[in-house]
């Protein structure tokens, strides 16, 4: 096995939030396993997934915390926002979330704003875009909500995989851009981003002098 999966320069922490049943776990599963889980049980508390991606030639490990949407876990999942570099806020395009339960999405957003860093990238995801016939939330109104609140936005389908990769990657790109801008402090232990030196410190290159004496160490 090559060193591949473990060689990365950054770790980004993500959190996925949103009402129950909107497809958070499916999105994570689609992103990490490239498969759709048709009957996914409700998440209990929080679950965890990782994947290594590449942004601007840099290997980045995404550490993704998928939270339970059920109300009874709200208190628990709030503790996981801390130090997230990216927050994926998911709704279901087939339910009236933006209009009739506008407050719902706003309350997720309030939580995300209150419990994360000011420069945490918040990405709004309208999931289940494959169910066009049952659509209840138009692209435009969700887009407007996103624009008004300064969120990145995409419609995805955890089922077909459409835009799933993009949502996760665009978030990472934005975070990476923040690092380049200097707006994100890398030294912060809990900025949700951790930097690793890529060049191994203790590997000897061949041209270095070898010890001539017999001492093994």
């Amino acid at each position: 096995m090559a060193a591949g999966p473990y060689n990365y320069s950054y770790i980004f922490k993500y959190i996925i939030i949103g009402d129950m049943g909107v497809g958070k776990s499916c999105l994570l599963h689609q992103f990490t396993e490239k498969k759709f889980m048709a009957d996914c049980p409700h998440t209990i508390g929080v679950e965890f997934g990782t994947r290594i991606i590449e942004v601007a030639g840099q290997k980045i490990k995404l550490q993704i915390w998928d939270t339970a949407g059920q109300e009874r876990f709200r208190a628990v999942t709030r503790s996981y926002y801390r130090g997230a570099a990216g927050a994926l806020m998911v709704y279901d395009i087939t339910t009236f979330i933006v209009r009739s339960t506008y407050n719902h999405l706003s309350s997720w957003l309030t939580d995300a704003r209150n419990l994360t860093n000011p420069n945490t990238v918040i990405f709004l995801i309208g999931n289940k875009s494959d169910l066009e016939a049952q659509r209840d939330v138009t692209y435009e109104e969700a887009k407007q909500f996103a624009d008004e609140n300064g969120l990145m936005f995409l419609e995805c389908s955890a089922k077909t995989g459409e835009n799933v990769e993009e949502a996760f990657l665009d978030t990472a790109k934005k975070i990476y851009q923040n690092i380049q801008d200097g707006s994100l402090d890398l030294n912060a232990a809990e900025s949700g981003v951790q930097h690793k030196p890529t060049t191994p410190r203790n590997t000897l290159s061949n041209d270095q002098p070898q010890s001539k004496d017999g001492c093994a160490c």
């Binding site: 203790n202 590997t203 000897l204 270095q208 002098p209 070898q210 010890s211 001492c215």
Partner: peptide, 14 residues
């Protein structure tokens, strides 16, 4: 043999 013996600074040859 040299590689196994290593260097004074204790680093490891590839």
């Amino acid at each position: 043999v040299q590689i196994l013996r290593g260097t004074r600074d204790g680093s490891l040859h590839p």
